[in-house]
Amino acid sequence: MRKKPTRKRSDHYRLFRIVILAGFLLTLAFIFLVSTLGSQKFGSLHKLVLEAVGPLQKVATRTSSYVETFKSEYIDILQDSLRLREENKRLIQQLQENENLLNKSREAMATNASLRKLLEFKNTLDQQQTVAATIVGKDPSTQFRSVIIDRGSNSNVQKGNPVVNNDGVVGQVFTVSPNYAKVLLAIAPSSAIDVLLQKSRVRGILKGDGTLTYRLEYILKTAEIEEGEHVVTAGYGGVFPTGLQVGVVSKIIKKPRGMFHEIEVTPSVDYQKLEHLLILQQPKLSEIKQMEHP
């Protein structure tokens, strides 16, 4: 009860001080405003203020500039490097994809070229029914020369069918299963093809010896033959069509003994690059009869 008048007095005193301070400040502001607006002079006060604020401004500007430089030199570089790394990754990936695509395209082009040649060759075989096949396996033994192809009896491939490519005779179908067949290559020792020397018209038997050359047998010594003469299929027996390219006479060994020449023939087919083949189908007996009696 006794403290109440003291607090009331203190509150009045505080209010009085605020009013006095406000009045003083307003008066100063009024004087400053009137003097400034009136004289339009950059006075001492202004100078003082400027001198006080200038260094602060300077520091702020320099700091800002420093921060800006730092940012441009380091943070931006860091960001750029991160961005570049991402970009690099993306480009490397893109490059790899493109290289893969390029390889596939090259492979497709090579296959296309090979198949195109085969197709052109196929078109030269007039009425002959053919089946295109690809080699899927090769004989690993040292004694035999054969390959497995991806066409069989389901594609009307039969035992004995001649096998060729765009360069000439490759071999003959040896065994057949529904979807695959084994082809005895012409370079195999057990292979024998009836052939004709194109220029001299001499007939002989072409045999393989397991290497990349053929042996031409049963050519009488009386026959006049030359190196470089082309050897083609004779067409006797009806297995191979007449005139298919087989090879070129590369060596004639004349021995004093015996009745026959020893002749080496270089194959027209490159056995190192065998890939796509054509199987020449022989007409069935019923078809031949139908052709004879339509």
């Binding site: 396996g137 090769k138 004989d139 390959v147 065998l274």
Partner: peptide
């Protein structure tokens, strides 16, 4: 056997095909 007749035999006369 499959490996030997495919990957180990690049050409029909390839010598270095291991049995």
């Amino acid at each position: 056997a499959i490996l030997q007749t495919t990957l180990c035999m690049p050409t029909p006369t390839w010598l270095l095909a291991p049995d």
